[in-house]
Computed example of a mutant assay.
Amino acid sequence: MKTRAAVALGPGQDFEIRELELDEPRPDEVTVRMVASGVCHTDAIIRDQWYPVPLPAVLGHEGAGVVEAVGSAVQGLEVGDRVVVGPAFCGECEQCLAGHPMYCLNFYDRNFSARRTDGSTAFTAADGTAVGSNFFGQSSFAEHTNVVAHGTVKVAEDAPLDLLGPLGCGIMTGAGAVLNVLAPKPGSSIAIFGTGAVGMAAMLAAKAAGASTIIMVDIVPSRLEFARGLGATHTVNSKEQDPASAIAELTGGGVEYALDTTGVPAVFAQMTNSLGIRGHGALVGAARMGTEAPIDIGTLLVRGVSMSTVVEGDAVPKEFIPRLIALHERGAFPFDALTKTYAFDDINAAFADSASGETLKPIIVY
């Protein structure tokens, strides 16, 4: 079929909406009519070639939509099913079998090659040239796309698809890093560095987990004020004061848990320094390959801290996304407060607003 899609052409260039040819779904795929797709920082850094993903390609990896065709080998999905789409994974390697598909040994190839495993693409331009597809198993910046079936999560018929797409990456990343990896105990303390969508999702998850001291760190006063309105107990403007010192004063020595959502080396160092004795820190912020951060290992050694790097919240999407939906339905995870919708034709405005910080989590609605 023919479909409209936003094509990434190169660093710093606007996405171009073009009509492409979409092929038939492979045996392990389903064709999804996208209802909406979140805009994620990862889409921007791939467009700008922080990672060597071949362009031109259709990006987008926070899709939600309706199944319109089912591959011959797919089980458990039917035409008309409503789905949220998560990352692709092989399902067969030791990490997948151990319940950690976000650390699939084939994760990079399955999500960043912009190709199927056989080298083909689902999209073709008018002149017959291939256009990259299967980004994170989905390439959701298209009105129709072929999706790896095992990455889909079936949701209820009345589920708000125009809202749920970001659960497949950004919201899952922040919330999963807290709930699945740090796992703060009720009454515990946590510091979260960065008040973007991932950081705010982490904060909402920490609140849902029962953390009693939730400290948000950023340099934008309006974001910090917004965080307080959503549940932060304290805020620290790291442009005005050293966050590690401020956090030590607030907590009597440092937090039990901390999360860096920025990927900025100096912020990562601040996060590690904010930990108390035997504290546990985590990093989810993406940085350019080769980025190094200064860590005082001499001081950290005697503090017994732990450090984790976290991909996609270390989630099993078919288990974790329904948990987040259930929390949202109970009013315990109001991530909709982070979102703003944009028409498909306004996708470049959505990216600009995301980059400027005007919008925490843009959602493209088709």
Rank of each mutant, 00 (worst) to 15 (best):
G38K: 04
G38A: 07
V39A: 02
V39P: 10
H41D: 09
T42R: 00
T42Q: 08
D43L: 12
D43S: 11
A44K: 11
A44N: 13
A44Q: 13
I45E: 12
I46D: 02
R47S: 13
R47N: 15
R47G: 12
D48E: 14
Q49W: 11
Q49E: 15
Q49K: 13
Q49P: 03
Y51N: 02
Y51K: 00
P52Q: 02
P52I: 06
V53F: 01
V53A: 14
V53Y: 00
P54F: 11
P54H: 07
L55V: 10
L55P: 01
P56R: 10
P56V: 14
P56L: 12
P56M: 12
P56S: 14
A57V: 09
V58K: 02
V58P: 03
V58C: 08
V58N: 09
G60L: 10
G60T: 11
H61V: 04
H61R: 01
G63I: 08
A64L: 05
A64Y: 10
A64W: 06
G65Y: 13
G65K: 08
G65V: 10
G65W: 14
G65N: 13
V66W: 06
V66H: 07
V67A: 06
E68M: 09
E68D: 04
E68R: 12
E68G: 05
A69D: 14
A69R: 15
V70L: 04
G71L: 09
G71R: 06
S72Q: 14
A73I: 05
A73V: 06
Q75P: 00
Q75Y: 02
G76K: 06
G76W: 10
L77G: 04
L77R: 01
E78A: 15
E78I: 00
E78D: 14
E78Q: 14
V79K: 13
V79A: 03
V79F: 02
G80C: 01
G80L: 01
G80P: 03
D81V: 07
R82A: 05
R82I: 08
V83E: 06
V83W: 03
V83C: 04
V83H: 03
V85G: 00
V85C: 15
V85K: 02
V85P: 00
V85R: 07
G86H: 13
G86K: 13
G86T: 13
P87D: 04
P87Q: 03
A88N: 15
F89R: 08
F89D: 06
C90D: 14
C90R: 07
G91D: 05
G91K: 05
G91C: 05
G91M: 06
E92V: 11
E92S: 09
C96R: 00
C96T: 02
L97E: 12
L97I: 01
A98E: 10
G99N: 09
G99D: 05
